[in-house]
Each structure stands twice: as C-alpha cells, then as structure tokens.
Design a protein around this nucleic acid. Structure first.
Length: 534
RNA sequence: GGAGCGUUGGUAAAGCGGUUAAUACACCUCCCUUUCACGGAGGAAUCACGGGUUCGAUUCCCGUACGCUCUACCA
C-alpha cells in the first residue's frame, strides 16, 4: 500500500501504469488558496486559508497559494503583496506560490493565459462549449426582454441560447467569418439538459443539481482571459490539487466545475470538495462585510488596508492589537471544534487535531466580544517577551521611552491579565513610567478629611525614613500608621491608589509603589495633596 | 422567481435514538479582592414548526416556515 507521503509520480501515471493499490487518496495532499488581489484580506478569507493549511499540514501535504488575477479591470496595486504579508503575520506560509516558487508555476493566472485557450478550444471541439458573439449590450437586451415577474433574472441557458448570436445559431460559415475578421467572442460551456450532477462535499455530504437549471457560463472572456470557472478547474488539475476548499457561496456554480472536470480530466481525478460555511454579520443577516466592521467598530481585515484608488482605509486585527495566535485560534473556533471543551489551541495543536468532518455546516455570526476574549487568553498565556517589543513601540508612540527592559517585563507581567488588546497595556502600565496627568480627585474628595490629609503628610515623613523600600515594609508601615490614626486602612488605600495611578485600576498599591520607587511615590502623593487643597 | 445550502440558550457550539441537553463568550447575582482585573459559585433552551419511522426522537425520513448564498465576459 502506498503511504500518503509517497510522491504521486510513483502512484500510477508516472510509470505509465495504474497501480491497483495506489488510489487517489494515497497521493500527497495538496491544497490551494486562490484569492483575487482586489483588496483587503477578509476574515473569511483567512479562515479559508487556515482550514486549507491545517488540513494539508495534518496530512503532511502542501499548501499552495495561487493568485486569481484574471480580471484585469479589478487589478489593485499592492493587493498581492498585502495578501502575502497577512499570511506571514498569521504564520500560514505557503509551500508554493508566486513568491515562494515551486514546480507547478507560474502561480499567477495572468501569467498562465495561453494555457486556458487551449483547453477552452478542446471543449469546443468536444462539443461541450461554443463560441458566442453577443455584445454586452445584446446580453443586456436579452435580460430585459425575457425578464418576467416569474423569472426576474433570465439566464443564458439551454432555453435562451437559441435566441442569441452564437455558434449554435449562426452556422459554420458565419462563425468562421466572424472569427476571421477578429470579432470579439467568448467561449461558453454548453450545459446539458436534465442531467443530474452530484458530488460528495466533505462537509455537506452528497449534493446534487439538475444541469438544466445552470446557465451556460462564460469560460473564456473576450480578452482571452479565463473566468474563474475555467481557471479553477485547469489550475487545480495542473497543480495536482487533491482537496479544494472554498466558501459556500461557490456551491451553486459547483456543477459547472464538476462537468468541466468530467469533460477535461476525468471525474476520478477531481479533487475532493469542501464548501465552508459563511461568516455572517453579528446582528441581522448576511455575509460579514467591511462595512459592518466600520459600522460596529471592529476590524474585518487581517491587517490595515488602504485602497490605493479611493484612499479608503480599514484597520486590521493586527493593528487593532490582536496577537496572531489569538486571531488564528479565534478563526479556527468559528466553525470548527475538536469535540471537547478545549478552546485554546496553538497552531501546532490545530494541525494535529483538525479534521474536516468536525467543521460545522451552518454559517456563524461573528462575535467580536468572543474574539477579544481569545486575545485576552493569549496575552495571559504567552510570556510577555513574546509581545513586549510591540508594546514598547506603542509606549514610544505615547512619548514614553522604555530604557529598563527588566522593569518593563515585570510591569507587563503584573498587568497582563487586565489587558484584552495590546494597546490596553498603555493604559494599564504607563503610570509605572510616567506620573499620571489626570488624577481622579473626584473619587477622593467626597470622603476626604483633615485627618486623612494629616495621615498622608505623616506617611510621607515615615516613608522618607524607611530603610528598605520594599512591598512588605511599605504595607506594614502604612497599616501601623493607619491604626495609629484610627482610620481603616481601606479608607486610605483608595486615595493612595489614585495618587499613584491616577484612577481606580491597576495591581496592588504597594506593588506599584515598590516599582516606581521612593522618589516618585512621594512626589505623586505630594502632588495630589496639593490638588486636594486647592 | 428559481436552485442550492442551512436552522440546538443573545452569540459560538457539544450532542450523532434513551442525557438533569455539555462548554465558552456576553449579561445578571454572589464570593474573593477595601481599586480594576484574574479566579470561584449560581442564573437562561420544552433543540424553528407539522407530520411520520420507532417502545422511545434534539438526534432518522418527508413536508412547511424562516434565513443565507448564487442567479455577471467578478471572484
């Protein structure tokens, strides 16, 4: 029996023999993600990448990234590089791609253009496709002419193609003449009538369609570029893709793809399909879009993206302060689980445990609160050194230069469980390095008394003389003095906290005092005492 | 309009013929902490509806409803 790792060339066609024991599923797993470089990389896109990656790596296979840039009108400068950057940040690096190279290139469809015509013409010869000369205007006319209440969107299908200007209605001579004079044309698939097309989806099981209900999709466009429908089949074949995952929105066009496989390469060579559930808007209905993010205040793209044409900008999960570990984990949990109560997974664990049959069928509404929880968990779990540099940069932006790394790490460690997103560290920890500008004296004033004022004046004196500036001594001194003044320590702790921190938050007060040191502690107490007098 | 896919607490979801229907997020209450957070305890679902099949259905089958996707020379 061939092992799954055995090179596919040894499994049959390479030796010119079809080995009985070497079936399709014994071939090396090869999956692909095929984005079109038209804008920011959406949450759903990253999740598709993730599932591809996890599946491939689980079986020791390859993850290929192919650029679907067949629509020249939608080319966006920088989008391709951006996609690679996102994958890099997520840690989902392709084995083969336009930048990583590989034996099945080129990995950009625009660079494979001549290939597609060949196959399209083969289909024409086989009678499974035909030339069509209808202009965009004529198509538009057809749609309005045949539009009825019952049929609001007429299709270019077996019923209507007889009314159109194509090789099926024009006659051989005329077609040849049109072709000879360079008349623009497209090649359309000729969908058969009343043929049941069925295939097994890895997530949904058996799905079937009636071929009569599908339209004669354009395979090759007038500019010579293939449409997605043709390109996906040819490239998946040529790149030896064994499993093809994509969003559920592709399900309705799957029958055309299955047919193309049947006509061109044989159903036995077709990859296993899996149509992933959609990620939906948090409230209401429909696919999650960038607009929802803007409206509800959360990111939708993996990383910041600015459209070079419109200048429109969108923030990404990365820039919002997500750790890649959390982002990936959250995405995996959106539609997949391992059947246990475990929710936090490393990439390695995901690779080990992932399986397609545990992917949920229904679409999931995106919950930003849950996404934040994953990030908080990862902040708590990871050593602070893992993200200290990033946080340091955020401090620098606020004008706080960190010089003492050891102190910085202790501080981060001390406040990490209070941080949900990376920028929270700035709020939670900057007072360790810079005296607070805003002091919430309103939280002190209502219960402020002359006795308390006196207490702090004496506390300053006592602290000035304290031999060892350390947590336990500071606390002991504080409590003894409170007792001497007959004030409950609790009534004094909050004021002290506000003096040191500026507000009602942060770790233990004496921990803070210990770290910021005698000089700063006393200065901050004095400063606030001054404010309270005024 | 048509086709396909889907439907378990507010959200994500486990369950794969017999369970007190897990768990997590969010929310509320309480404990811990004289801050905030962490941590701990508790609180919510007659599994969309109607028929079957079965001794027994959240689980299997068929309808209905609802939702989503697609219905471009875009992917």
């Amino acid at each position: 029996m061939c092992s799954p790792q055995l090179p596919s060339t040894l499994c049959g066609e390479g030796l010119g023999v079809r080995y009985y024991l070497c079936r399709m599923d014994a071939k090396k797993v090869r999956v692909r993600f095929a984005p079109s470089p038209t804008g920011g990389l959406h949450l759903g896109g990253v999740r598709t990448v993730l599932f591809n990656y996890l599946f491939a790596k689980h079986f020791g296979g390859d993850f290929i990234l192919r650029i679907e840039d067949t629509d020249q009108t939608r080319f966006v400068e920088g989008a391709e590089e951006y996609i690679f950057n996102c994958l890099e940040w997520c840690g989902l690096v392709p084995d083969e791609s336009a930048v990583h190279g590989g034996p099945y290139g080129p990995y950009r469809q625009s660079e494979r253009k001549p290939l597609y015509l060949e196959y399209a013409e083969q289909l024409v010869k086989q009678g499974h496709a035909y030339y069509a000369f209808d202009t965009p205007q004529e198509l538009e006319e057809m749609r309005t002419k045949f539009k009825t209440k019952e049929n609001p969107s007429p299709q270019y299908n077996h019923e209507l193609r007889g009314y159109m200007r194509n090789a099926l209605t024009l006659g051989e001579a005329e077609v040849a003449a049109l072709l000879a004079t360079g008349t623009p044309y497209v090649i359309r698939i000729k969908m058969p009538e009343h043929e049941e097309i069925r295939f097994t989806d890895m997530i949904r099981g058996e799905v079937s369609f009636d071929s009569s209900l599908s339209d004669d999709k354009v395979l090759l466009k007038a500019d010579g570029m293939p449409t997605y429908h043709l390109a996906v089949v040819i490239d998946d074949y040529l790149m030896k893709i064994t499993h093809a995952f994509r969003g559920e929105e592709w399900l309705p066009s799957a029958p055309a793809h299955v047919l193309l496989w049947k006509y061109l390469f044989g159903l036995e060579n077709m990859p296993q399909w899996a149509h992933l559930p959609l990620i939906l808007k948090p409230e209401g209905n429909g696919k999650l879009s960038k607009r929802d993010g803007d409206r509800l205040g959360f990111p939708v793209f993996a990383m910041d993206w600015t459209d070079p044409r419109t200048g429109e900008a969108a923030t990404g999960f990365k820039e919002r302060g997500f750790l890649p570990e959390a982002f990936i984990n959250m995405l995996a949990a959106l539609g997949w689980n391992d059947g246990t109560a475990q929710e936090i997974f490393t990439l390695d664990e995901l690779v080990e445990k992932f399986s397609m049959d545990r992917v949920h069928k229904g679409g999931a509404k995106f919950d930003f609160e849950k996404a934040k929880w994953f990030n908080q968990e990862w902040i708590k779990r990871l050593p602070v050194t893992h993200y200290a540099a990033k946080v340091k940069g955020m401090f620098a932006e606020k004008g706080i230069a960190i010089e003492d790394d050891a102190k910085f790490y202790t501080v981060l460690e001390m406040v990490k469980e209070r941080c949900i997103l990376l920028p929270d560290f700035v709020q939670q920890a900057s007072f360790f390095f810079l005296a607070p500008v805003e002091i919430d004296t309103n939280s002190i004033k209502p219960k402020w008394t002359a006795q308390k004022n006196q207490f702090f004046i004496e506390l300053i004196r006592a602290y000035e003389l304290i031999p060892y500036w350390q947590h336990d001594d500071l606390e002991k001194e504080f409590k003894e003095m409170a007792a001497a003044h007959q004030i409950k320590p609790g009534d004094l702790l909050l004021p002290l906290r506000i003096m040191l921190v500026g507000g009602k938050f942060g770790p233990g007060v004496f921990d803070i005092a210990t770290i910021i040191g005698k000089e700063d502690t006393l200065a901050r107490i004095k400063h606030t005492l001054g404010l309270l007098e005024a």
